[in-house]
């Protein structure tokens, strides 16, 4: 499937991390594409591998303990394809991709910014990393970037330090920094989790607007199913290093197929569907220990619909508008 629209094609990506107690397979064979001008939402509970997948798209996986296998093919603006897995993580080529093609924002912008440089300084630095610009023009450009993220009094903010801004403003500045080199893919790892709901709503609105204005792709990682529903076009659900279900956001929310996705959706209090103080449908047990992954389907011992067949690892089956990794759909086409 070599579509012109695939910005990133991840195939059979595995991320193994060596620890004192053995190898953790943080990501265990995932395949997905990120399309230009779409928002891909990635949901899962902590430890499912969603953040490390994002980091590996920039080759920021933990070193030296982490090793990548499989392929991550990035198509650049001149239609050249590069496999990131084969690149030297400290080399020139990956730096070029980080500067031009893929950018990332994080949950806590305070730790992502350097506290001793002004916001303007830090945006300028990332611009200069990939192109030359005379100082006056550079200042103008930084202000323009801050205006683009609807930063109030952008002229003043370039001279401010990160700690002088509120959480929401910092996240805006972070987005401005990430967009300063006009990436074609923005990876957002829980960008609104640390914010108040009101600020979260404005950041999500901003990201949606920017995505349409700039025609870029966004990979949006979160554990919050409400946020995903508001921003994503497509969703993939991860559980213990595997993608268990993927598809369009409507299909996932209105017709989830995998028992894990269904359970996840039912465990959020939804005022429109549930009477107050009724018991929520929780998933029994908790996410298994990564050294002790159940054989066969990983969700098996928490699944309400487990069968004998589940002791065998399920492959992906095609369902309408997506894929699901579950034996319940045995007999459907395989992708």
């Amino acid at each position: 499937m070599v579509g012109a629209n695939h910005l990133v094609q991840v195939e059979d990506l595995r991320i193994h991390i060596r620890t004192e107690d053995g190898i953790v397979k943080a990501v265990d064979g995932i395949t997905f594409d990120i399309d230009a001008d779409k928002v891909l939402g990635v949901v899962g509970e902590s430890g499912c591998g969603k953040s490390i997948t994002a980091l590996s798209l920039l080759r920021l996986e933990p070193r030296p303990h982490g090793t990548l296998y499989g392929s991550i093919r990035v198509t650049d603006d001149r239609d050249r394809v590069t496999d990131l897995v084969k690149l030297d993580p400290l080399g020139k080529q990956i730096r070029r991709i980080r500067a031009r093609d893929i950018s990332m924002i994080f949950q806590e912008p305070m730790t992502a910014f350097n506290p001793v440089y002004t916001i303007g300084n830090q945006i300028a630095e990332s611009v200069l990393a990939y192109r030359k610009m005379p100082p006056r023009e550079l200042t103008e450009y930084c202000i323009e970037m801050l205006r683009r993220v609807r930063m109030p009094s952008a002229e003043g903010v370039i001279n401010r330090y990160p700690h002088e801004l509120s959480g929401g403003m910092r996240q805006r500045a972070m987005i401005a920094l990430a967009l300063s080199c006009r990436p074609r893919l923005l990876i957002a790892d829980e960008p609104t989790t640390a914010l108040d709901v009101t600020v979260q709503a404005s950041i999500i609105r901003l990201m949606k607007e920017l995505q349409q204005e700039l025609g870029m792709a966004i990979m949006f990682i979160t554990h919050d199913l409400g946020v995903i529903a508001e921003i994503a076009d497509d969703v993939q659900v991860m559980y213990m290093g595997k993608i268990v279900e993927s598809g369009s956001v409507r299909r996932i929310y209105h017709g989830a197929k995998h028992p894990y996705t269904m359970a996840l959706l039912k465990s959020v209090p939804n005022p429109n569907k549930l009477p107050r103080k009724s018991r929520l449908a929780s998933i029994e047990g908790s996410v298994p220990d990564p050294f002790n992954i159940p054989e066969g389907c990983r969700f098996r011992n928490r699944c309400p619909q487990r069968m004998d067949r589940c002791s065998e690892e399920p492959p992906l089956f095609a369902v309408e508008e997506g894929l699901v990794r579950c034996w319940l759909y045995e007999g459907r086409d395989r992708p």
Partner: peptide, 12 residues
């Protein structure tokens, strides 16, 4: 204002 900011887990 607070209520309008709650993300609802329903894309529609």
């Amino acid at each position: 204002f607070l209520l309008s900011a709650i993300p609802i887990p329903d894309p529609d």
